[in-house]
């Protein structure tokens, strides 16, 4: 079991908050709240990977981002990073991008439980 860092945009964070009484997150999971997923820098994700953590980026659905481009940017960065990691021979599955709306908190929490136990 490794550390998991979850970057949550406001919407996903509220979602996770709403289900916090229903389902408990593992201890290894650290939730980082960001205003929008588009602001999560590529470098920050790489840094997290270097500190031997797995990274999950959870944010709005692609056409549902209040900042128009945030979700697409995050998706692009993660997809590019995954392919680059694969290219240099690292495990691309250490980085995940999830599309989570405010009402899908349960889905995110369940995924995190699964991901942390991997």
């Amino acid at each position: 079991m490794g550390k998991v860092i979850v970057f949550c945009c406001d919407a996903a964070y509220y979602g996770l908050n709403m289900v916090s009484k229903l389902i408990e997150l593992p201890e290894d999971v650290e939730v980082v709240r960001v205003p929008c997923l588009g602001r999560v820098e590529f470098e920050a994700v790489v840094r997290a990977l270097l500190d031997s953590a797995n990274v999950v980026l959870a944010g709005c659905h692609e056409n549902n981002c209040k900042n128009i481009d945030g979700s697409r940017l995050a998706k692009m960065r993660v997809e590019l990073l995954r392919r680059m990691l694969e290219f240099v021979g690292m495990d691309a599955d250490r980085v995940k991008h999830l599309e989570i709306s405010t009402y899908e908190g349960l889905k995110l929490a369940e995924f995190l439980n699964e991901f942390a136990a991997r």
């Binding site: 590529f42 470098e43 270097l50 990073l81 680059m84």
Partner: peptide, 13 residues
């Protein structure tokens, strides 16, 4: 090694 990998990934990105 690890910092070097990060450096080159970020530079390429």
């Amino acid at each position: 090694l690890d910092e070097n990998i990060a450096y080159h990934l970020i530079r390429a990105y």
